[in-house]
Amino acid sequence: MTITITAFERSPDRGRGLARDMRVRWALEEAGQPYEVRLVSFKTMKEPAHLALHPFGQIPTYEEGDLTLFESGAIVLHIAERHAGLLPADANARARAVTWMFAALNTVEPPIFERSLATILERDEPWYEQRLRALGDSIRKRLDSLSARLGDADWLDGAFSAGDLLMVTVLLRAQASGLLEEYPNLAAYVARGEARPAYQRAFAAQLAVFTAAAAG
Rank of each mutant, 00 (worst) to 15 (best):
R82A: 07
V98P: 10
A49H: 07
Y128I: 15
V37F: 09
L77D: 05
W100P: 14
Q200I: 06
W127K: 13
P60R: 05
R142L: 09
L180Y: 07
L121R: 14
A91I: 15
A188L: 06
W127E: 15
N106H: 12
A208F: 06
G136P: 06
L143C: 10
E29V: 01
M1Y: 08
L135N: 03
F203A: 08
S177W: 05
A198L: 00
F203L: 12
Q175A: 13
A97S: 10
R149S: 15
L67V: 04
L186H: 08
P60Q: 04
L77V: 15
T119V: 15
L28Y: 00
P110K: 09
F56L: 11
W100A: 07
L121E: 10
D13E: 10
A176M: 12
M22W: 00
F42N: 10
T68K: 12
E47H: 11
T99P: 11
Q175T: 15
F113Y: 10
R82Y: 05
L135E: 04
H50G: 02
L87V: 10
L156E: 03
V190Q: 05
Q130W: 08
K141I: 14
E182V: 11
N106Y: 09
M45V: 08
H83M: 03
D137A: 13
A159P: 00
I59V: 12
A93S: 12
F203G: 03
G151E: 02
R201C: 05
D137L: 09
T99K: 11
P184W: 04
P60E: 00
Y189I: 11
Y35C: 03
A104D: 02
I112A: 01
D137F: 06
L132Y: 00
E30C: 02
Y189N: 04
T6R: 03
F113A: 15
R16F: 13
G17S: 06
E64A: 02
A104M: 05
L67Q: 04
D144L: 11
L86V: 03
F8K: 00
A174V: 14
I5Y: 03
A27E: 02
P111R: 03
T99E: 14
T61I: 01
R196Y: 02
G17Q: 02
A80V: 08
